[in-house]
Every structure is written in C-alpha cells, then in structure tokens.
Amino acid sequence: MTIGKDTIGMIGVGLMGHGIASNIVKHGYPLVLLDHPGNQPVDSLLAAGAAKVASPAQVARQANIIILCVTGTPQVEDVLFSPNGLLQGLRPGTVVIDCSTAIPSSTVRIAQAVTEAGGQFLDAPMTRTPKEAAEGRLNLLVGGERELFERCQPLLRCYAENITYVGPIGSGHRMKLLHNYVSLGCAAVIAEAAACAQRAGIDASVLVDVLANGGGGGVALERLRPFIQSGDDSGLRFSLSNAHKDLGYYTTMAEETGATHIAADGIEQLFKRGAKEAAPNTTLPHLVALLANDKT
C-alpha cells in the first residue's frame, strides 16, 4: 500500500470506468476492483498493482473511497442494497462517489442509506467520452457537502479536467440529466436531419458543411460528422440503449419536478425505436442509417 494514499474501490470498469481506474493507479493510489463480466480487460490494472474481489461488500471492507461507475439507477441500487452489497461491508467514514448517470430522487435515498450506515456520499456524474476518460480529462458535476467535495478534489483531479460543484446531494445527477438531454437531443435532431437529407438526395458533405457554418454547428455535429460522411461511428461511442435510458431518466426528473417535457418525450421515443431496432450496444451514430432505411 502506498503511504499517505487512500485505498480506492472501483465498481464498474467499463468503457468509462476503465479510464478512471487507469488514471487512479497512475497517480499512485492503491486500487481494489469488483470482478464483473461487464468490465473491460483489467490485466494492465492488475499488473500495475490493483487487486480484484468478488463482491461489493468486499470492496467496501478494503477501500476508504469507493467510486461507482455503472449503467444506471437499477445497477446502483443493486450494488448498494443486494445481500452482499456495499452497505454490508461499509466502514464508518468511507466515502461513496457515484459517477453513474442516475435518477436524482433515487440518489437522495441512496445517500441517506450511506449516511445512516456511517459513510459519506457524493454524486459526481461525468460528461465526455471514453477517450477523455483514458486521458484523465473528464468533466465532473458534483453534488454533496462542499467540505467533502473539497477533500475529495485531489482524487477527482486524477481523472477529470473540469470539475464543477453544483450543489447539495442529487444536484450533480440533476445537472447531468440536463446536460445529456441537451447534448443527446442535439444529436437526435442532427441524426434525423441527416437521414432525411440522405433520402432527399442531399450530399452528406454538403449537409455537414452547411450545418457547421450555420446554426447547426457544435459538438454534436462534430461527433456525428464522421458517420454522416463515411460511416465511421468512432466519434460518439455512446449506445442507443444508453441514450434511451438517459432520456427516460430526464423525463422522470421532469415529471417529478413538474417541468414541461414535450420535446424530451419525442426524443425519448426516437431513441427507444432506435434501440429496439438495432443490435445490442449499437452506437448512437447508427441512428442515421436506421432512420434513412426506415420503411414505415
């Protein structure tokens, strides 16, 4: 164990979590991983000194700070509340940092359960892509007590470039859903327009150039540009199923707060349709092709 460093527990070593874990190890923190079939290959992490254990409870027994990076609310709740879950091994003072995308009302309940078990909680969801995760350049949106946020900043800066304190517990997840609604919504509009352009006989490069030089320019277009022009989906490695999930979380939040969500409902249905028609783990750029080939 490295002297003076907290032991970090990592639950969820997928496309995003693997980059987080790699940067934590690179900065000299002892790391304990939950062994899970959804993990990316962890050989390089183990070679760098990380250990792996079989249950969330075992992670909690060995770590001072635990980072969750799983798919969504059902998975977070399972990690915490299952018979061999995190709460079964949580030690007093342990910090739980949830980097997943989750329904904020569930986040508040989970934070309360962690606090009642003697732990502390931050919700710190991330934006950007696996590329930035590997580079240690994620954006984090953090909710929780400011004093705890400040104390955890040295760890967070191992894998994040821009860190924003948003407010009390749940605020990070609320801001993440707002962000994803806007970013995924823009991508959905561009994908639908690109499919229409294809059917209307508009050259893909002309479409992209006109949008980029006008009101359609921005991050969403640049991430979709390679697919629109040449079928390369590497610019946006985000699945249609996750897009559908995130829009569903957003509309749930909007309903719970009494906010209007008319446009969000339509975008959610578009992603639902794409996820249903596509193979598992199909990335969002393929929505262009699915819509262009739609026979209905």
Rank of each mutant, 00 (worst) to 15 (best):
D203I: 04
F149H: 08
L287P: 03
A191V: 02
V288A: 05
I8A: 05
E277F: 03
D209Y: 01
A194W: 00
T115V: 02
S55P: 04
D6E: 15
G172T: 03
R174N: 08
L122I: 08
H179S: 12
A212W: 02
N281R: 14
D35R: 13
Q58G: 01
Q153F: 00
L284P: 01
V114W: 06
R61C: 05
N23L: 01
I169A: 12
G167R: 10
S230C: 10
G214E: 09
T129P: 01
L141E: 08
R174T: 07
A243L: 02
C152T: 13
P125S: 07
G38L: 09
L122Y: 12
G72F: 01
S105H: 10
D233E: 13
A117H: 04
L247K: 01
G136Q: 12
H36E: 04
D265I: 06
C99H: 12
V25Y: 00
M1H: 15
N180P: 04
R61K: 15
N23E: 06
P154L: 08
A200D: 12
E135D: 12
V25L: 15
L221P: 09
L247M: 15
E192C: 03
L15W: 06
Q40D: 10
A275P: 02
G274M: 03
L15V: 02
Q198D: 13
T282L: 10
A259T: 09
E135V: 00
A188H: 04
